[in-house]
Structure formats: structure tokens, C-alpha cells
Simulated scan of single mutants.
Amino acid sequence: MAEVYLRPMGILHGAEARAAIASGVAVPLAGGPAAFSLAQILARDEAKNKVIEIGGLTSTSDAILKERLQALMAPRAPVAGLDFSRPLVMGIVNVTPDSFSDGGEFADSAEAIRQGRALAAAGADILDIGGESTRPFSQGTDLDEERQRVIPVIEALRDTGVPISIDTRKSSMMIEAVSAGAAIVNDVSALTYDAASPDAVARLQVPVILMHSQGPPETMQVDPTYEHVLLDVYDSLAGHIARAEEAGINRGTIIADPGIGFGKTHLHNMQLMAGLSLFHGLGVPLLLGASRKGFIGTITGEKEARHRISGSVSAAMAGMQQGIQMVRVHDVRETVQALAVWFRLNDPR
């Protein structure tokens, strides 16, 4: 458990970021195109919380704060050949009959393949293919069934030129998917569901996404509780990253996901979304998966997940404003358009 945390504030983008860095009033955020001019010092003893200007932080003699600042500033390594000169868009391909978001619309392999090609054509940087629903209270999927769902889709989509991510909790599925053409492992259990997963990922030598969840899908929404959701999720992810490194996984290949909607109440989700920039302190790229999720429906009153497109794009843009390096979305075309306009407005050049 960390004693002190730093959350970047005053985040700038594009021309404003470059000008602020040049004038010394801001520093780069994660070595990318964004910068930050303020930082909030957080502690579990809230009486110690305060906001400090970047000049005061860069000149501090506090070794812990210096270490935290370096983690915030350090460049992130490319993932599957993709750098973070701009936020990346991961398109979701659910090959499941019971997904919360699309109701099994792409459960058939042929439909999933068509959807994957459509997302690639719409501008997806990564295709995330999963054959097991992890919606709240779901019961899991047999390995053979999961294999039959995803392997044909991966094999068919590996010629798109878009890196493929395999969304699975099972080590055997990770190995087979990478053999079939996947380049990234995305595990909602952060390699804790299957004891063989850390070793498998270390041997595969592919990037891995470690997501936070308070419990498995079957029970994660049964009264989720936290002492301080931002700091608790941060500490949990820091622990997952440390254990992955102990298993032989290169830190430069790790991506962290705070797990919006996975073992969180509506208030927890709101607090995480508001404080996303804190997780840059983990020193790894960040992925936000908020697309079509329940908190959007709670805010807007929209009960049908597939009709939460506008809210999902807004959530993705909120993450990008906080410097998130990747967003995982169902609605790629709309998100890519929003990103293109936002990026150009921030940097007309």
C-alpha cells in the first residue's frame, strides 16, 4: 500500500501542452502528447491532501514524490508496434450469445468476422476478440466452447493488418489465440483466474492488459465496497503489476485497466472516471473500457446498452482528456471521428 499518491491535474493537450512544457510551467504526461501543470497529492489520511504546482514538485527534495513524478512523466513503450503519439482505439468483437452490450449480435463466427473487418475499416487500432461474457452474474464458458468461438475469428482477421487482442481468463486460450494470430492478451482477472496464466504470458512475450475487478463476474456486483475506491484500485493494480513482473513479464509490455463496472457501484464508477489520471502513476499505459456500460444508462436513463453510443463517446473523450492511452469501445467509427476532431481542435497545426 503506497503512502502517498500523485494525480496529474491541469492536463493540457496539443499546442498548449508544447507551449507549457517549453515555458517550464508543465511537464510531459507519460512521455506522450499531453502535459500537466499541477498535481494533487493524495493520501489515505485526507488531511494530508493538497495540490502543488509543477515547479514545486520538480524541485522537491522528497524522494518518494520524486519517484512518483518520474513514473508520471516516463514514456510508455509501444504496444504491438503501436506508439502513443495519440490515443489508440480498441474495437470490441464479442463472439458470445449473451453479451450485455450487443445481445449476441455477433455470436456467429461469420458475423463476428464481418464485424471485425468493419471495425478495422472504421479505424480501429486493435481488435479485441472475446468468446466469454464477463457481464455481472455470468457463469463463465467452457474452454472448448470458447475456443470454437474465437479461433476461427482470429484466423480470419489476422490479415487485416490490425493487431488482435484475445479477451480471455484462461491460459490455454491465451496460448492458442497467440498461435492463431493474436498479439495481445486482455485478462479481466489480471492473470488471477488461472494460476498458469502469468507463466503463459511470460513465455508468450506479448503485451498483457491487467484489469481490476473486485471478485469474479458471478459475484462482483454483490455489494462491492472500498475504503477509498481510487486508492484501493490503484494499490490492487500495482500489486498485479508487481506479481506479473515476478512471473517474468516485462513491465514494458503491461497495460493497466481500472475496470469500470467490474465490482463497482455507480458512485465508484463516477469516482474512478473523475480520477482516472491518478493511474498514470503506475508507470504503464492505461486502457479505459467504459463503452455502453451501466453507469451511462444510469446517467442518461437509456436502458438499452446498444443505444448508449453518444454517452459512450463522451466517456471515451473524458478519458482522453485525462491522458488515457487506449479506449476500448463498441462504436469505433463514432469514437474515431470524435478523436480526430478533438485532436485537431487541440492542435490546429
Rank of each mutant, 00 (worst) to 15 (best):
R68T: 15
R68A: 15
L72M: 15
P75C: 01
V79Q: 01
V79R: 02
G81Y: 02
G81K: 04
D83Y: 03
F84I: 03
F84Y: 14
S85V: 06
P87R: 07
L88Q: 14
M90E: 03
I92Q: 02
N94L: 03
N94P: 05
P97L: 00
D98W: 11
D98C: 08
S99C: 01
S99I: 00
F100V: 13
S101N: 01
S101E: 02
G104D: 12
E105R: 15
F106K: 04
F106L: 02
F106M: 05
A107T: 13
D108W: 06
A110W: 13
E111N: 14
L119E: 03
L119Y: 00
L119C: 01
A120M: 11
A122Y: 12
A124L: 01
D125F: 07
D128F: 01
D128K: 06
D128V: 05
G131F: 02
S133H: 13
T134P: 06
P136C: 10
P136E: 09
S138K: 05
G140R: 15
G140F: 13
T141C: 06
T141E: 03
V150G: 04
I151L: 14
I154F: 10
I154H: 12
I154G: 09
L157K: 05
R158S: 14
R158M: 10
G161F: 05
V162N: 08
P163R: 08
S165A: 15
T168Q: 09
R169S: 08
K170L: 09
S171N: 03
S172F: 06
M173A: 11
M173P: 09
M174H: 09
E176F: 08
A177E: 01
S179I: 07
V185F: 11
N186M: 04
D187A: 11
V188S: 05
